[in-house]
């Protein structure tokens, strides 16, 4: 027996045991197939508040579903699954499972901010998408995005030295994202720098890369700063 409308059922809602005998009756395969229902049973009342605590999500509750954001969206033009209005709605009602289904595309937001510009109620959809992406990372639903890795390397560097050393941040980022440390463009970049920059400058850069100098009297500032940021995050997200 075939389910004709099989394409109308998400595969993960089909339960079938290939080989099964119950009470002496062979009910293998489609004879025992059951479908799990697709209706929504509850809202998560706290989810909206959770997202509002992430930077960018503060105004999510103002949305009245006019759809201006989606209509103006750069990504929506590429992929109709990319629908900020819809995610905002799901966020408001706390339909987390539905949001998670789109985990692989929410981060594709290109931050053009057309949505935020056009929104008649100042919801800032771009911020909501960021907030959602971060929430999913925090929950371990998605891998950390490259930008989060970069962000973390960047801040580690600051906590540690009180300043940014470009080459160190870049190498740290490559390491975290399992990229080769020697990349073609980087080699080319280095060759050209050698060609055009004065030797003294090159030496200083090389030295800085090796010893990574710290800001004067940075002392424990980095640790205090890090503790403070952690504390704030804890307070915001619980």
């Amino acid at each position: 027996m075939a389910i004709h409308e099989k394409s109308l059922i998400e595969p993960d809602r089909l339960q079938t045991t290939e080989s099964l005998v119950v009470d002496g009756v062979d009910v293998s395969g489609s004879w025992n197939t059951m479908i799990t229902p697709r209706y929504l049973r509850d809202y998560d009342d706290d989810f909206e508040k959770t997202i509002q605590k992430y930077g960018g999500g503060e105004n999510v509750h103002r949305c009245w579903q006019c759809g201006s954001c989606t209509n103006s969206c750069t990504m929506y033009a590429q992929n109709v699954q990319f629908n900020p209005r819809y995610w905002i709605y799901l966020t408001r009602l706390g339909l987390k499972d539905e949001i998670v289904k789109d985990k692989d595309i929410i981060w594709q937001c290109v931050s053009c901010n057309k949505c935020t510009n056009i929104c008649p109620k100042d919801v800032r959809p771009e911020g909501v998408m960021k907030a959602l992406a971060h929430w999913m990372e925090d929950q371990g639903i998605t891998e950390k995005s490259p930008s989060s890795h970069f962000d973390e390397t960047f801040w580690e560097e600051i906590y540690h030295t009180g300043r940014i050393e470009d080459a160190a941040v870049m190498m740290g980022f490559f390491k975290r994202t399992n990229q080769p440390l020697v990349q073609e463009w980087l080699v080319l970049f280095g060759q050209r720098m050698m060609k055009y920059l004065p030797v003294s400058q090159l030496l200083k850069m090389g030295l800085n890369f090796i010893v990574t100098p710290r800001t004067k009297s940075w002392g424990k500032t980095g640790e205090v700063l890090k503790a403070y940021v952690e504390e704030q995050k804890e307070a915001a997200h619980g």
Binding site: L40, R41, D42, Q65, Y86, Y89, E98
Partner: peptide, 11 residues
């Protein structure tokens, strides 16, 4: 929920 396009049964 016509925006989610799913039946809902909410307490």
């Amino acid at each position: 929920d016509t925006l989610v396009k799913r039946p809902i049964i909410i307490p």
